[in-house]
Design a protein around this nucleic acid. Structure first.
Length: 234
DNA sequence: GCGACAG
DNA sequence: ATCTTGTCGC
């Protein structure tokens, strides 16, 4: 079954999905829809996965926080079966719909969405964060722990950032602390690389990853355990 | 052709 | 992402 899905993807359908990504990328706006001062909230989104009877499920959690105070306002959750495998550069087809639904439940005016995945720092300029930002027509930023695409130099000092380039500036490699490896930040939609960096840095504080992402990660795992324990007892 | 490759 | 214990270091 799994092999069937993978082979059908290999034989050309991935090309069509890649074309879809290129079309979505054409809708991206890299100017700030919100100035830094206008940002009132941020939403962090992340997901957890698990298998139940040979089927795979995803739990997405979206945590709305005040900005720049970072007080939790609301949490949105989406739970569903997943049928698309993880394929590098096609992550949006596996996690995108679920992430969008979770964010929809908590989204307000003047909010920047922070996603655990690339934005335009992607071979076709269409990472998970771009998908979410275009689908919701809302400012979004992508943050990853590993680089996916683009040329950059290693930031060496704590707090230092280096541009990620693909002809032009498409994001930043940022070193959160002396012993931390860099994180990679790129605009998803409706935000500039500079503002994307500034917002993310403002949410990191003493950690490596943005606090909204950390909170979303915790919530997704919390929900995952809930579903599993409910299943067991029923 | 070979290797790289978010979560 | 997920499977998993302890452990080294700031």
């Amino acid at each position: 079954m799994l092999e069937d899905r993978l082979s059908s993807l290999r034989d050309g359908s991935l090309d069509k999905l890649a074309e879809l990504q290129k079309r979505i990328a054409e809708e991206v706006v890299l100017e700030d829809a919100l100035s830094y001062e206008e940002i009132k909230y941020v939403v962090g989104v992340d997901q957890a996965f698990f298998k139940k009877n040979d089927e795979e499920f995803v739990v997405s959690a979206a945590v709305l926080m005040s900005f720049p105070e970072l007080r939790i306002q609301e949490v949105g959750v989406d739970f569903r079966k997943v049928d698309f495998p993880y394929i590098p550069t096609f992550l949006m087809f596996r996690e995108g719909d679920s992430a969008v639904e979770a964010v929809k439940k908590v989204l307000r005016e003047r909010t920047v969405v922070i996603v655990d995945g690339s934005g335009i720092a992607h071979p076709r300029k269409c990472g998970l964060a771009t998908f979410v930002g275009v689908a919701l027509k809302n400012p979004s930023v992508g943050v990853t722990k590993k680089p996916l695409y683009g040329k950059f130099e290693e930031p060496k000092r704590s707090g230092e950032s280096k541009g990620i380039f693909d002809g032009k500036l498409i994001g930043y490699a940022y070193k959160p602390c002396a012993r931390c490896k860099p994180i990679y930040i790129s605009p998803g939609n409706m935000i500039s690389p500079e503002t994307a960096l500034k917002v993310v840095v403002a949410t990191i504080r003493n950690y490596k990853l943005p606090i909204p992402i950390r909170e979303a990660h915790r919530m997704a795992n919390r929900e995952k355990l809930n579903y599993l324990s409910d299943f067991d007892s029923s």
